[in-house]
């Protein structure tokens, strides 16, 4: 439980970047309309590559903080694997919902702005 809490805390720091990528996939899906299934391969690699890029950016800018997690028994590799799997599953879930029922564009917009405002609020609180 403690490990999960710590990994969640680390993920919180890279969530926004990853989530913006996921939302951009939804927008591309919306624009593709009936041909959406044709671009799913491209979106898959787009997501995988951005997950790795965002983690390595975090590794660069938060490298000092990684010693905190290391001293708590959570290695960089464990952080990479767990946050990447979770984020990919989140992406997969949202894409699946989009494929099955289709999220209206206004709802995606509302969701995006809510996430941005929450992050802005949390950032200014820091």
């Amino acid at each position: 439980m403690r490990t999960l809490k710590l990994i969640t805390r680390f993920y919180g720091g890279i969530f926004l970047g990853n989530f913006l990528v996921t939302l951009s996939c939804i927008f591309l899906f919306l624009h593709a309309g009936h041909d959406a299934y044709k671009i799913i391969g491209i979106l898959f690699w787009y997501k995988v590559i951005t997950i790795i890029m965002i983690f390595y950016t975090a590794d660069h800018y938060k490298k000092n903080e990684l010693y905190y997690y290391q001293n708590l028994g959570i290695s960089k590799l464990k952080l990479l694997i767990t946050t990447s799997i979770f984020d990919f599953l989140l992406w997969l879930g949202i894409i699946w919902i989009q494929l099955l029922i289709g999220i209206p564009a206004y709802l995606s917009n509302l969701f995006l702005w809510s996430v941005l405002l929450i992050h802005l609020y949390l950032y200014t609180r820091k």
Binding site: K62, N64, E65, Y67, Y68, Q70, N71, L72, G73, S75
Partner: peptide, 20 residues
């Protein structure tokens, strides 16, 4: 040993606690 916090802990020369 970095994977074994029961064996060895490390205080780096810079601040490592997340500032928030």
């Amino acid at each position: 040993a970095s994977k074994r916090s029961d064996l060895l802990l490390y205080l780096p020369q810079f601040n490592f606690i997340p500032k928030s």
